[in-house]
Design a binder for these strands. Sequence first.
DNA 1: TGAGTATGTTTGGGCGCTGAACGAATATAG
DNA 2: CTATATTCGTTCAGCGCCCAAACATACTCA
Lengths: 409, 409
Amino acid sequence: MSTGSAGPAAAPRPRDQADVRRHNAAAVMAALGAGPRSRAEIAAVTGLTRATVGSIVDELRSGGLLTEQGARVPRGVGRPGIDVALDPSGGAGVGVEINVDGLSAVLVDLTGNVRHRASRPGDQRDRRAADVLRAAARLVDEAIGEAERLGLVARGVGVAVPGLVDLDAQVLRVAPNLGWREIAVPERMTRAGAGAWPAVTLDNEANLAALGELWSGGAGSRDSFVLVNGDVGVGAGVVLDGRLHRGSRGFSGELGHLPVAPEGPECRCGARGCLEQVAGLDWILRTAGLEDLVRSGVDPMSALVAELAAGDAGANAGVAAAGAALGVGISALVNLFDVDTVVLGGVYATLFPWLEQPVRAVVDRRVLSARWAPITVRASTLGRDAAVVGAARSALRDILLDPLGGAAA
Amino acid sequence: MSTGSAGPAAAPRPRDQADVRRHNAAAVMAALGAGPRSRAEIAAVTGLTRATVGSIVDELRSGGLLTEQGARVPRGVGRPGIDVALDPSGGAGVGVEINVDGLSAVLVDLTGNVRHRASRPGDQRDRRAADVLRAAARLVDEAIGEAERLGLVARGVGVAVPGLVDLDAQVLRVAPNLGWREIAVPERMTRAGAGAWPAVTLDNEANLAALGELWSGGAGSRDSFVLVNGDVGVGAGVVLDGRLHRGSRGFSGELGHLPVAPEGPECRCGARGCLEQVAGLDWILRTAGLEDLVRSGVDPMSALVAELAAGDAGANAGVAAAGAALGVGISALVNLFDVDTVVLGGVYATLFPWLEQPVRAVVDRRVLSARWAPITVRASTLGRDAAVVGAARSALRDILLDPLGGAAA
DNA sequence: TGAGTATGTTTGGGCGCTGAACGAATATAG
DNA sequence: CTATATTCGTTCAGCGCCCAAACATACTCA
């Protein structure tokens, strides 16, 4: 087997009182994710007693993760509660996305607000990896500087890449659309950075986009959905029961090479009619006659949207065809994973108004269970930012999941 | 949303010391699943201290779930340990499978041994549901009687059905191949049963087969695999990280209606070229010229295997074609779920020698990641029994996961 | 026979949750 | 304006659980 982890018999850690505390502290943090609440309300939501909540809140407050807000306006009989909220200055996460069509970075605080944003558009395919990593490192340096200016401490850096990531080794194994292979992105970026950085973690962009969507969707932790991230490549991040499913080797959600057009063009991967070939950004732009824009540094999406809005026939037909192909892929996803929601992200979020109809038509036809239970297809609320924001928040996840350990460190 | 469960805000239960105990007791049971061990060995495997293990073992022993075996032959210097093992008489589970081609039942004890087995072959499609349920109930009565004779207490009954199950309501929503709709199987079987039955739980056969495979595969709890269950219909049970994935509405693994042959025959579901139509048992038997056997009560599988072994051209070609179609479906599964193992169950287990080559050929071609990491395709170790045994063991799962609660009740 | 080693049990200590009681702050009734 | 009801946050004893260490037990080896 290739479990890859340590331990002679994969011993599942035993559990003791400290785990109880950890779990309940995380539950308190989660309860505050939706907004400020009084201790009594937290107790009601989590099922803990007020005594326990009080004790946990004290501890988290002294750790700087929570703040007490002024007494709230009374809402009825009885002593009014004092709202407790996530402390915006309790820590921040930096997210960077390295993508084919540009770099971007954000700074997100504990409450989930984006406090800083920067990007460097432009095709990265013709640049050397070292140059790209240096540019990305500069964006991180900027973000960390901005954090200090805002009185925040950057607790971690998350990096999103369009490729296959070895999470244990923290190495980008292969990113076909960038033409990269075997690059230790976190290590090299840290070396290229100016100051002292917190821990840098690497992950796949579709996975991070799904996490970003999960956390800002506001939806509960029992959610199941698939985020289909469109760019030059097409990937899917799969969230089942509120947990990201990564697959046994990190290949999960490999949607881009699902065969959807038996007679379609040949793909880099050797097969024929891969989804990526007939629904990827390159194909869409080519159909719309905009392929030359990419290398010129202009953001081609604005041009495409302009053409679509203007009713350009070629562009509209191209996007509709891409939507139909995408629908086939989504149908397979839904049939196998049985999620009731599919979220379109990346460029698909931008193109959603033009994609929705063709996708829905195919899905309604091909998804068996659609007759009993409707399938929701919607655009990502974060739009093209899903992956960067997800990367930044994933850096904060450790704090939210283990607030005590995080505060102590 | 359709979370369906109770609670105002989907409150995740808080955790207290009792949960710690529960968790650790379950860890002890799990450590003994692989065979008898001394307390010190259990401590080493679980990471608990010897003191804690001693206390938990005492409690479970007085609950009748564990037994002390005679002092083991010393294996070196030092005081020899005393082996502790799951108590075979600590409880048993009854499994029943209601399928298109017959009924079967097993009795399984805590250690996983099948202690009793019975079946009623014959096509169930032309019988009334009430008659079928009565016959199934008789099999359960028999198994419970047999349990008493063996000194076992039947702790639960699991029922496997080839259809869509509403787990909360415990109702079979639809079983196309049986022609059943909206049947409260557990309730009706319990009424039809002779004596007092323990709790009856209903689940989909592919899911239960996957669970059966998981538990008897001996593999650890971090396993990910898909069990593709072949019968008249084709279903898949998906196990990710050792947990069965059911999907948000129980439709997960709906593989039978994946389009694999665009020009194929029309399916009951309305689409064209569904996998089930070109790889299901009916199609295989028809191609082999054995379709008449089904209604005659003879087990057609033996006849088919005989023809295959004899080198019958039609039979061999039919199975090879089914294997190719199956390979397409499996490829989609692997690409999306990223499991490294696919297990063939049901009739596919029986036909595995003839299916292996055609399936593997297609999978190697269509699964992207196969180049980096090999995909294992193997036959179920339980063969056609996977679902029944899984059903029986699922009835014991509550005990294994919550041994203290189970013992107290 | 005595030293050495590993197993199983006992004991004291610490930690975290619970439940009940208590003071604090507000609304409502008279 | 005062008294009562209600809700919030805190305090405190009690209990259960795990851990670490010491102790008793059983076997090997010299």
